[in-house]
């Protein structure tokens, strides 16, 4: 893909990924075929800040985990009352990076 297009993508979507992944994403986007672009440009990534807010208010019900696609862990959190409240508390600090990791998995699936 063209470097300009890729940089535009990175500028508008960089916040959805871990900072140490951004460079690797940029390189693989430049190496990727142009046919991936339409798919990539319409993909919705989860915003870590939104998920953090959901986690703070509804983390005990596992809704944050459901939203990022960790259905199994979401069910686990729901059934155990947020892991006796402890898991829900830990997730306030973990969920943002978990969201970014999930976004990374998503982009890898598109490019893979």
């Amino acid at each position: 893909m063209e470097a300009q297009k890729v940089d535009m993508f990175i500028m508008s979507n960089g916040k959805y990924f871990e900072s140490h992944h951004v460079n690797a994403i940029r390189n693989s986007l430049i190496a990727a075929d142009d046919s991936k672009w339409p798919m990539l440009s319409v993909t919705q990534f989860n915003d870590p800040s939104t998920i953090l807010i959901v986690s703070i208010f509804a983390g005990q019900l596992g809704i944050d985990r459901f939203m990022i696609g960790d259905t199994g862990l979401g069910v686990g959190k729901l059934l155990t009352c947020g892991g006796l409240g402890i898991w829900a508390l830990i997730d306030w600090f973990m969920i943002q990076s978990a969201t970014r990791e999930k976004n990374m998995e998503k982009i890898q699936q598109i490019l893979g």
Binding site: L79, T80, L84, G85
Partner: peptide, 18 residues
């Protein structure tokens, strides 16, 4: 008790009573 929802709102959560 450990349920945050019940402690804060006094309303039981879906998994209260488990």
């Amino acid at each position: 008790r450990v349920c945050l929802i019940k402690e804060v709102t006094r309303i039981p959560c879906p998994s209260c009573g488990t």
